[in-house]
Design a protein around this nucleic acid. Structure first.
Length: 416
RNA sequence: CGGGGCGUGGCUCAGUUUGGCUAGAGCGCUUGCUUUGGGAGCAAGAGGCCGACAGUUCAAGUCUGUCCGCCCCGACCA
């Protein structure tokens, strides 16, 4: 992609509307723009990041034997009355009456909808277990949207649901999902803690949260430096670890994922039963597994940045390489830049060419701000010596070698 | 919803305390010349009903009231 044809509005100064660091960098790097509090437009670069995150999630969740589907955001409120959650969810759910007088809501989550769907097509233990998931936009009229994408009223969630004949099956799916979550967050370059958590509105007995350490995070978690374990406490705060008696530390985190053993809460209330081997009707045993996909973008930035801007983990980087010709009026430099750009593209790389007629300083600053993993700098020097200059954004390390050698370095970086 | 802060060209802000006549700066944008490896220099331009409405006054960006919007702290959550 050519920068001049793309839409990457970078901002030099810190926007007044943003206080938290990830929010500031997202705006400055041209990833998102606010439409109103809690609702954001994803610009081309932001969408690329989002797609990369979703790609990782799909790979890992598919490998758990789950099938992706897509449920409607529009839901009948009736389902929520049946499940008994209508009152619990309260005003967080966006409700309206359509022209036919039906009471509709915009889905804040989809346990009811998926249970209703599965109910009419699953009738035998032979059809179970089943794991379904979707990546979809959720709507919640949050009491206070804040920190940009961290708490938005419209956000993207990956929500998976497991259906089993017994607790043992649920335990197995739960563990599989738990392990997949660990892999997902690792590939996203995130340092996370898992905590035993309160199930809240979701219901069920057991749940775990996946928390990213972040200075600007809104969730305070109690962490035991000895056991490396953490717990969220809603009311009473113990001073010391219950296992080893070490003093607990309070740390700020962002909740990225939450998984629940739901049991029969939804299957029982909505009548999702199956016939077991003995011919008896029993409610399906369910689990649900959420990841805040758009929230991940913020968390990744919180954990991967320096004073100059974002440093994307390589699988997340909106482009793998950015090529910086330092003088667009010099045809030799531009020829070389175009050549490198084309060859990298032919080699299957995602490449951005900064073909703007800007001074070198502007290009360096913007490239560092965007945080694309690799930069190829083409100026008079590299032209004279017939070499290429590669800069790795994470350590700002510069490598000057011949073109084939640099291409080899890039390959190694991407695959290594 | 309760508490606090803010609202002035696209962006960051000054000016508001103590009302005063054509509303400013820097960045960005347009044109020209010069520059060209870490957000260039000079020159000439374009761009504003000072968040909205109502009031006080000879006079309101500035004072009063109401409303709207955004940010931060609390309950909620991925």
């Amino acid at each position: 992609m050519l920068w001049s044809k793309d839409f990457i509005p970078t901002i030099k100064e810190t926007p007044q509307e943003a206080e938290s660091l990830s929010h500031q960098l997202m705006l400055r790097a041209g990833l998102v723009r606010m439409l109103m509090a809690g609702a954001y437009s994803y610009l081309p670069l932001g969408l690329r990041v989002l797609n990369n995150i979703q790609g990782i999630i799909r790979q890992e969740i598919n490998s758990c034997g789950a099938s992706e589907l897509l449920l409607p955001a529009l839901q009948p409120q009736e389902l929520w009355l049946k499940s008994g959650r209508d009152k619990d969810i309260g005003d967080v759910m966006i409700r309206f009456v359509d022209r036919r007088g039906r009471n509709i809501c915009l889905g804040p989550t989809h346990e009811e909808v998926i249970t209703d769907l599965v109910k009419s097509h699953i009738s035998s233990y032979k059809q179970l277990p089943l794991v379904l998931y979707q990546i979809q936009t959720k709507f919640r009229d949050e009491i206070r949207p804040r920190f940009g994408l961290i708490r938005a009223c419209e956000f993207i969630m990956k929500d998976a649901y497991s259906f089993d004949i017994d607790e043992a099956g649920l335990d197995k799916n739960y563990k599989t999902m738990y392990d997949a979550y660990k892999r997902i967050f690792k590939r996203c370059g995130l340092d996370i803690l898992t905590t035993e958590a309160d199930s809240g509105v979701m219901g069920g007995k057991v749940s775990h949260e996946f928390m990213a350490l972040a200075k600007d995070g809104e969730d305070v978690v109690l962490f035991c430096p000895q056991c490396k374990s953490a717990k969220t406490f809603k009311e009473t705060d113990p001073q010391k670890c219950l296992k080893c008696n070490t003093g607990l530390e309070k740390i700020n985190t962002i909740e990225l994922g939450h998984i629940f053993k739901l049991g029969t809460k939804y299957s029982a209330s909505l009548g999702a039963n199956f016939v077991d081997a003995k011919g008896e009707q029993r409610p399906i045993i369910m689990g649900c597994y959420g990841i805040g996909v758009s929230r991940l973008v913020s968390a990744i930035i919180e954990q991967n940045h320096d004073k100059d801007g974002i440093i994307w983990p390589k699988e997340i980087s909106p482009y793998q390489v950015i090529v910086l010709p330092l003088d667009t009026t010099d045809t030799k430099i531009m020829d070389k830049a175009n050549q490198v750009y084309n060859e990298l593209g032919q080699a299957g790389m995602d490449v951005l060419l900064d073909d703007r007629d800007e001074r070198a300083g502007v290009k360096f600053k913007d490239a560092d701000l965007l945080g694309i993993s690799l930069q190829i700098i083409i100026g008079k020097e590299s032209l004279k010596q017939d070499t290429l200059e590669l800069k790795i954004r994470r350590h700002q390390k510069k490598i000057i070698k011949t073109k084939p050698e640099i291409f080899e370095e890039i390959k190694e970086f991407v695959n290594g």
